[in-house]
Write a protein that binds this DNA or RNA. Structure first.
Length: 651
RNA sequence: GCUGACGUAGCUCAACUGGUAGAGCAGCUGAUUUGUAAUCAGCAGGUUAAGGGUUCGAGUCCCUUCGUCAGCUCCA
């Protein structure tokens, strides 16, 4: 009888009849015992539900198992509740904030009088294991607003949350054993499902991310379905630690930050500077072939320039304060260090009359700019105050925007995709709250970028409110060798500054027209990109970037002259090589070369000296060695260098 | 900027409840002349981040400043 049944559709399109009141768990059981065992949650008409909720008639249901990413989020969300359960037992007066799943785990925010110590975390984790062993079911209840307020009368943060819920929202409450939380859900069936987790660290976090509100104490943890996954994740954290560019930067003598000079200011040591030089040279070649022109502009300017550009009202917090002019100049004259190059390049554009025939005009400058980043945000080379941008500003007609975006995406593909072998994705970042210009120009600019992306056939995501203050942008996000996401390249469209500077070009109609501007960077900044490269390659750079490409190792002093001759042949081919003439054993020199991640070591013993060969040791390849005539060795390396190969030519 | 933790030799780390700063690696010197991831010995190296305070006595306790780290926020 139909009234006693509900009908649900499965993902394969088939239909299943269940008794009224059947839950997701019942459905899984009806499909098969294996699925019932593996089931974590149900996706009901696209929404993830607890397995214990009753299925309405006519819905489409998919049973989520450990293989579904959404199931992992459910597990982590439940883990956050287990964390809160444990914290409430150990700290009964802790007020509870939010506890969502995140990228690789979960967190929960608590308001407590004193921050959690590492010892607290150990105790909390132990208590969590007790909660798991107790295997409390997660019980969902729907309550009305008055009831919700009554239940959370002692939790001001939750009360605030309840106030913010819309009038028609269903208020649900989940209970696991002793712990009750206001929560949308869903959850796993019981706390016993959570087995493989670990608390990672605690840190302060503002309530609702607002720095004017009180600071809560956030505990981060990670949780996985299997022990292997958990261990793999913890290994990944270890791996990330080993790749830390601050550590490798010191070990490989690439860069330093000097307390005497100030935070966020990078000293590029000779080896790091060589990398920067190679990166610069590469990108300059690429853009010069594509119609760009190099310019150099001052680091300082009268601050009126930034008033005119619109920086001062909206960007002053990120700029260093003004400095007075020298003696003899007017009292009121103040200078600023530049945080961006755009106004400078605009002045070059405006320095002469421009014709529609000249456009696009592409002005590029790899220049230092300085931004007064908040001290707490600074981080090695990845977030600095002195930035070397591979910057360019393109002045063009509106009808040229699309073509130019295509060219820029081509450059991104050439540099990030082809040369560095990175996979990346595109974000379209739209107008932020603090912005210049009218909604009409923003509409126009956002539409232009979106059109270009669509016509290109590119896939992209929308980053709502992520744009620059003067215009929307396409941000390029790429992944490194261990799966982390980075941002560098950016393409920004700007209708605003041409307006503010009254830029013009003479059109075909012999009348003045306003050009559009594109701001773009491919590496982003050389600091961040270099920091990324260090972590991505774990310091083992491809040959073309490696500061030291070949180390020639004489086995004893007797082979030093032969080794020097080899070094000269290598250097003559444009490769960076040096001879390790130190009075040490071969083993020592090899260990030193490996720890410094030199791509090739060329061992010269008496046999090689006599035969005109080298015994080549490839970085990381262990004892395996290839004996080659010097000329052949040099030829193979030259090829590897020219092609900017990512894998060694000799293996 | 905010919250918390931290700051000892170039690097990694020691130094009991306050009692004269110590080791390994790196560096220098010498011996050794080495065949694929550390040869041996000796020497040198520090106003314990800076400044102030408490104390007979401070690396250790207190205050201020600077910096670093984990986050929040922000972002190339």
């Amino acid at each position: 009888m139909a009234a006693a049944e509900v009908r649900v559709t499965l993902p394969d399109g088939s239909e299943k009849r269940l008794p009224v009141g059947a839950t997701g768990a019942d459905l899984a059981q009806a499909i098969g015992p294996g699925l019932a065992k593996a089931a974590v949650a149900a996706r009901v008409d696209g929404q993830v539900w607890d397995l214990t909720r009753r299925l309405p008639d006519g819905v489409t249901v998919a049973i989520l198992t450990e293989r579904d990413r959404q199931a992992l989020d459910v597990l982590r969300h439940s883990s956050a509740h287990v964390l809160a359960t444990a914290v409430r037992q150990l700290f009964p007066h802790a007020k509870i904030g939010f506890g969502p799943p995140i990228e690789d785990g979960f967190y929960y925010d608590f308001e407590v009088p004193t921050p959690f110590t590492p010892e607290d975390l150990e105790r909390i984790e132990a208590k969590m294991h007790e909660v798991v062993r107790a295997d409390y079911p997660f019980v969902r209840e729907e309550v009305d607003r008055a009831e919700a307020k009554r239940r959370f009368a002692d939790d001001p943060l939750k009360l605030e949350r309840i106030e913010d819920l819309g009038p028609n929202e269903v208020i649900s409450v989940y209970t696991d054993g002793p712990f009750v939380d206001l929560c949308r859900g869903p959850h796993v069936a019981s706390t016993g499902k959570i087995k493989h987790f670990k608390l990672l660290h605690a840190a302060g976090a503002y309530w609702r991310g607002d720095e004017r509100r009180q600071m809560l104490q956030r505990i981060y943890g990670t949780a996985w379905f299997t022990k292997d996954d958990l261990e793999a994740y913890l290994r990944r954290l270890e791996e990330a630690k080993k790749r830390d560019h601050r550590l490798l930067g010191r070990q490989l003598d690439l860069f330093s930050i000097q307390e005497d000079v100030g935070p966020g200011l990078i000293f590029w040591h000779p080896k790091g500077a060589m990398m920067q030089f190679q990166l610069r040279r590469f990108i300059e070649d690429v853009i010069l072939e594509r119609g760009y022109q190099l310019v150099y502009t001052p680091n300082l300017t009268r601050e009126e320039l930034f008033l005119r550009s619109g920086h001062l009202p909206l960007y002053a917090a990120n700029q260093f304060p003004p400095m007075a002019a020298g003696e003899g100049e007017g009292e009121g004259v103040h200078y600023r260090v530049k945080p961006m190059n755009c106004p400078m390049h605009i002045l070059i554009y405006a320095a002469q009359q421009r014709s529609y025939r000249d456009l696009p005009i592409r002005l590029a400058e790899i220049a230092n700019v300085y931004r007064n980043e908040r001290s707490g945000t600074l981080h090695g080379m990845l977030r600095v105050r002195g930035l070397t941008m591979d910057d360019a500003h393109i002045f063009l007609r509106e009808d040229q925007i699309e073509q130019e975006i295509f060219q820029l995406l081509d450059i991104v593909e050439l540099v990030l995709g082809k040369t560095f072998g990175l996979s990346y994705r595109l974000d379209l970042a739209t107008r932020p709250e603090k912005k210049l210009g009218t909604d009409a120009t923003w509409d126009q600019a956002e539409r232009a970028l979106e059109q270009a992306l669509k016509h290109r056939g590119a896939t992209y995501r929308i980053d709502q409110g992520g744009g620059a203050f003067y215009g929307p942008k396409i941000d390029v996000k790429f992944n490194d060798a261990i799966g982390r996401e980075w941002q560098g390249a950016t393409i920004q469209l700007d209708f605003e500054q041409p307006e503010r500077f009254q830029l013009e070009y003479a059109g075909e109609d012999n009348r003045p027209h306003r050009p559009v501007m594109i701001h773009r960077a491919i590496y982003g900044t050389l600091e961040r990109f270099c920091g990324f490269l260090i972590e991505h390659f774990a310091g083992a750079f491809p040959l073309w970037l490696a500061p030291e490409q070949v180390r020639v190792l004489p086995i004893s002093d007797a082979q030093i002259p032969a080794a020097r001759a080899v070094q000269q042949q290598i250097a003559a081919a444009g490769l960076r090589a040096h001879v390790d003439e130190r009075n040490e054993t071969l083993n020592y020199k090899i260990r030193d070369g490996e720890t410094h991640k030199v791509p090739y070591m060329a061992v010269v013993g008496q046999r090689e000296a006599d035969a005109g060969t080298v015994a080549v040791r490839v970085r990381g390849a262990g004892q395996k060695q290839v004996v080659l005539p010097v000329a052949q060795f040099v030829a193979r390396l030259s090829e590897e260098l020219q092609t900017r190969a990512l894998v060694p030519a000799i293996r």
